[in-house]
Design a protein around this nucleic acid. Structure first.
Lengths: 120, 120
DNA sequence: CCGGATCCACAGAGATACTG
DNA sequence: CAGTATCTCTGTGGATCCGG
């Protein structure tokens, strides 16, 4: 039973898209729904909505609705969500360090550098 | 295109069970299939096999087969896999720090402490 | 008995509309 | 613009079977 909470912890931000979404929000600060969509082209609206709602439920992400036409909704990392920065940083660092290995695996076309800082 | 490799990086250890499996292997060193099964009761043999094969494919986990009866197969973190220790550590630390918050969310029955060290 | 492989059932993810 | 609704299809869970 010693690991049960570790698994609960994982549920909060593990999922196919949550880390990717969080990285964007960590690096860019508040982002609109459409901005996130453009930043993560492979994700569908449905998944984006769903994952954001879950993150909001877990108090990782804040959802700010601007009642105007056309509608505008902004998402941002909450104060509590910032506690995940260590994990995000570790994942980011790992990605940076192991790009070559990944390239070997996937025969990568281009080596994009990953954001390492967290402004805002 | 700056984030593409971050996502590739995630692919390697994202999956419903991979982080949990990795935590076990990080903390316990080499483990038999049945040991992993007992350590993660909720996982099915099928999923355990599948996830381990994927981890093996990505060179994160090593599979050692002992040709004997009854059969014995041991899994361990590869040298390359050890590079994930930073991420595992960060996730583990986060889980430890935020147990109370998790308890509030899930109305936890018992607060199990998480492994923090990585002997072996 | 151990470490799987295989088959079936279902829930969640992906794709494509449509709406306030 | 920021989502829903709907349908399809992959991935997950469960049970059983198998070779050593």
């Amino acid at each position: 039973m010693t690991y049960c909470k570790f698994e609960s912890a994982l549920e909060i931000f593990v999922g196919k898209w949550k880390p990717v979404i969080l990285l964007r929000l960590f690096n860019n600060g508040a982002m609109r729904f459409s901005e996130l969509q453009r930043a993560i082209p492979e994700i569908t609206k449905k998944m984006l909505t769903q994952q954001l709602r879950e993150l909001e439920y877990h108090n990782i992400v804040h959802r700010e609705i601007y009642h105007q036409i056309p509608p505008k909704v902004e998402y941002s990392i909450t104060e509590y969500g910032r506690s995940l920065s260590g994990i995000m940083q570790a994942m980011n660092d790992w990605g940076v360090t192991h790009i070559e290995h990944l390239n070997q695996l996937y025969g990568a076309e281009r080596v994009g550098e990953l954001e390492t800082d967290q402004q805002n």
